[in-house]
């Protein structure tokens, strides 16, 4: 069982991207996928989007501070492994969580996965504004990720090269893929995202 952990600011395109990744895994690769949705607020929206797309989804409602949800997350992953035994578990973190912190805890305490990847989605359309107003959160979400997806490149916003440069100032070895999740993702992008050890 491999785990893909998706983070990124509120509304950056996590659900939209995950839907495409999950569709690729289930229909092209014929592999079994379970989604874990950690949503803020009791009236879930994303879990219904996933369920209506035919995906199996487990919801974890609750706080958005990573450390509070980690024990629930670990037990949910264990339960999914025992009862459903999927090829993939895809986790959507809340838009306020720090994915690499959660990843560290999961790697430390969960023993049931064979490969793990942390992916942070960045919203091109709001990059400068979010960096100006919420810098510690945005940088904290990016730091330590295995892959950055620079999304919404169809929208106007900061120059893509400038964002890439700023991402590489945070970590010069950072892998960045550039997409518009509102459109069909290319096979090369889909394979890059799911490529993990």
């Amino acid at each position: 069982m491999r785990i893909l952990l998706f983070g990124g600011f509120l509304g950056s395109g996590k659900t939209t991207t995950i839907l495409q990744i999950a569709k690729y895994l289930t229909t092209i690769r014929q592999e079994k996928v379970v989604i874990i949705e950690n949503e803020i607020g009791a009236a879930g929206v994303d879990d219904k989007l996933f369920a209506n797309s035919g995906l199996q989804v487990k919801s974890l409602f609750g706080g958005c501070v990573c450390c509070q949800i980690t024990s629930d997350l670990i037990s949910t992953i264990d339960e999914i492994n025992e009862t459903m035994n999927p090829d993939w578990v895809i986790i959507e973190m809340t838009g306020l969580a720090y994915p690499s912190k959660t990843a560290m805890s999961l790697k430390k305490y969960s023993k049931v996965y064979s490969a793990f990847k942390t992916i942070t989605i960045v919203d091109r359309g709001r990059w400068s504004e979010l960096i100006a107003m919420l810098k510690p959160l945005v940088l904290g979400q990016i730091t330590g990720s295995d892959l950055i997806i620079l999304n919404k490149v169809d929208l106007v916003g900061e120059a893509i090269e400038k964002i890439e440069r700023e991402l590489h100032e945070i970590d010069e070895h950072m892998k960045v893929v550039i997409i518009s999740a509102a459109k069909d993702l290319s096979l090369a992008v889909l394979e890059e995202v799911v490529c993990c050890e």
Partner: peptide, 28 residues
């Protein structure tokens, strides 16, 4: 039938009807 509406930049409401959501069930 559902409508999903989302807003991240002023006045720019994005609407996606459920018939446009991807089918990821693996069954067609």
């Amino acid at each position: 039938h559902y409508l999903f509406l989302s807003l991240t930049t002023l006045d720019n409401v994005n609407v996606i009807p459920s018939k446009c959501w991807p089918n990821a069930s693996g069954v067609h």
